Simulated scan of single mutants.
Amino acid sequence: MMVEKKKVEKPIVKSVSNRKKVTFKEWWTKTVKFFRDVKIEMKKVVWPSRKQVMKHTIVVLAFTLFFTVFILLADVVYEQLIFKLLLKVR
């Protein structure tokens, strides 16, 4: 008894590059428009004053220092608890 080989059809592979080819002129026009739009939007931005930037920077640094010290102290306390209570070392 012979086994018939079935013909397996290969899937049709469509071209990946279905995008329209952009000419240099179109690309340049879009790029210039993009930067013009960026310039317009940047004029709408309300920038903080130097005083506000300094104030916010100090607040961020203070919180960072506070939480650094807090985590350092918590680490030391937990280390001591683990070694003294659980492992009975030191």
Rank of each mutant, 00 (worst) to 15 (best):
K39Y: 14
P11H: 03
K51L: 12
T57Q: 06
V77K: 10
I58S: 05
S15H: 08
L65R: 06
V22E: 15
K84Q: 08
M42D: 13
R50S: 12
V16P: 05
K14M: 04
F24R: 13
Q80G: 01
T23H: 03
V46P: 00
K55L: 08
K84M: 05
I40S: 08
P48C: 04
R36G: 12
V16I: 13
M42N: 15
R50V: 15
E9T: 05
A74S: 14
M54D: 06
I40F: 09
K6D: 03
T23M: 03
D75R: 04
M54H: 03
W47M: 14
K6M: 07
S49Q: 02
W28M: 13
L72E: 05
F35G: 05
L72N: 06
V53W: 02
K55G: 00
D37F: 11
A62E: 09
S49C: 01
T31S: 11
I12E: 10
K25L: 10
K6T: 00
P11T: 02
F67E: 04
S15Y: 06
R19P: 06
D37Y: 11
V59A: 06
K20L: 07
V76N: 03
V53C: 10
K20R: 12
V46Y: 00
W47L: 15
V46L: 07
Q52H: 04
M54V: 09
V77S: 10
F70P: 00
K20C: 05
